[in-house]
Design a protein around this nucleic acid. Structure first.
Lengths: 120, 120
DNA sequence: CAGGATCCAGTACGATACTG
DNA sequence: CAGTATCGTACTGGATCCTG
């Protein structure tokens, strides 16, 4: 099966990396992993609002791209730890800048929205 | 109508700003506007692969957030120019860093993907 | 030319149930 | 605990047609 997205990304492959990083949950996963190694359930709590499915999927994508390191311990109950690779750390730092910027400027954006909504 | 996304963003409003900026087309629009003022059709060509609908929608969202300035000239045929506001410029710069980072490190990511795919 | 309106397909996503 | 599998739905986003 060939999806449009694949064709699209063949034309510009770096977009696919960027889209993984900037994906809804990707941003948050990278952000929270900046704080250090985390277990699956810790990530879920830390992010809030992610389903297990999406978290697992996001982590797999980021692991495949070499941004996240997955370490599974063969014990019962299972224990899996996620952390940033050096490459992932670089990406996460930049994402974090963007995230903190938007927090910092949130009020300006909200003002702009009010102005915009008022006159239309 | 109340969407889940709205409820979700009420819990953490700054996420909504971040999501607009990091949205699939938002990233690209901000990136291309760094080069300067552009008309609607120029943006479409410059980005490549956007439908008119999504471009218009993205531009409206960014305009509402005070990141993009829309200037419409009352002539026939219509002429509308888009540019970055000072706030938008700040955001765009950070996004551009992320974008150029992912281009620069594309090969590393592709290597990681190969390794990952090979062993599973 | 710059979009708005409409329609529709594919996808993303969440809920639930299940397993090692 | 850390997932996978399956299912159903809401939404995204593209195609098309239309207008000032």
């Amino acid at each position: 099966m060939v999806r449009d997205a694949d064709v699209y990304n063949q034309r510009c492959p770096s977009r696919s990396v960027l889209e993984h990083i900037t994906s809804r949950w990707g941003v948050l996963v990278l952000g929270i992993l900046l704080a250090g190694t985390q277990r699956f359930s810790e990530l879920r709590k830390g992010i809030g609002g992610v389903s297990e499915k999406m978290l697992a999927q996001t982590l797999q994508t980021l692991e495949r791209d070499g941004l996240v390191l997955r370490k599974a311990y063969p014990v019962i109950p299972p224990r899996v730890e996620y952390s940033l690779t050096p490459l992932g750390l670089e990406a996460a730092r930049r994402v974090a800048e963007l995230a903190s910027w938007s927090e910092l400027n949130l009020s300006k954006v909200l003002d702009a929205r009010q102005t915009y909504d008022a006159q239309s």
